[in-house]
């Protein structure tokens, strides 16, 4: 049996405090983590499972989090890794999409459809169509769009979370946004 010296007892108490603080800070971010997860997997149920698994792992490995660094990015890194481990990449999207249109394409199409004004754009593109269009963007591109444009992570954080260079984040982001806009243009023209 180990000796319960005063130093040792203090150490244990300090560690328990650190752990409790970590858990509280992580839990406070749960809604934000879920918001990102929800856009990375198809259903609310899968998003909940993924977030739950993320927290199981985070609570188990809390010591490897470096205090003072970005906890939300740390949690999202666990989450994206778990998502990949689950074999999501088995259905890897083709790395080359058909050549997409430029950044103005959507707006020219909306204009042709008589929806070229700001308030008309919002009317024309329903919540359902936005969510559907985003879900249709291939994973590699969508991950980046979700992290940067919806999660509001910096390029650097997104690069760290996804473990890719910043240049890759930027090129996927630009391409992903264009793919999303092209989907929306197709919907807006027919809708």
């Amino acid at each position: 049996m180990s000796e319960a010296t005063p130093d040792h007892a203090r150490e244990i108490a300090g560690e328990a405090r650190d752990r409790i603080r970590f858990e509280e800070e992580a839990l406070a971010l749960a809604d934000q983590v879920y918001r990102v997860a929800r856009r990375l997997v198809p259903s609310p149920e899968e998003a909940e499972d993924l977030v739950q698994d993320t927290y199981v792992r985070a609570f188990r490995n809390w010591r490897s989090f470096e205090a003072g660094t970005n906890l939300r990015a740390w949690l999202l890194r666990i989450l994206t890794n778990l998502n990949i481990d689950r074999g999501r990449r088995a259905q890897r999207a083709p790395s080359t999409q058909p050549v997409e249109e430029g950044d103005y394409f959507l707006y020219d199409r909306l204009d042709e459809a008589g929806a070229g004004e700001e308030h008309r754009l919002v009317e024309r593109l329903s919540q359902d169509s936005i969510v559907e269009a985003l879900a249709a963007v291939p994973h590699d591109f969508r991950d980046v769009v979700v992290l940067v444009d919806i999660g509001e992570f910096s390029y650097a954080d997104a690069a760290q979370i996804l473990d890719v260079p910043i240049g890759t984040v930027m090129s996927r982001l630009h391409r992903g946004r264009r793919i999303l806009k092209q989907q929306l243009a197709d919907m807006a023209a027919t809708g």
Binding site: V122, Q127, I130, L134
Partner: peptide, 29 residues
Amino acid sequence: LEEVLWKHVRNCCEEEVNGELASNGLQQR
């Protein structure tokens, strides 16, 4: 319009998830 679009995308995603977060009991779990 690009700025309007991305603000709209963020709002739509946020609204859709708000309802789920209010009822899924995730925090408790």
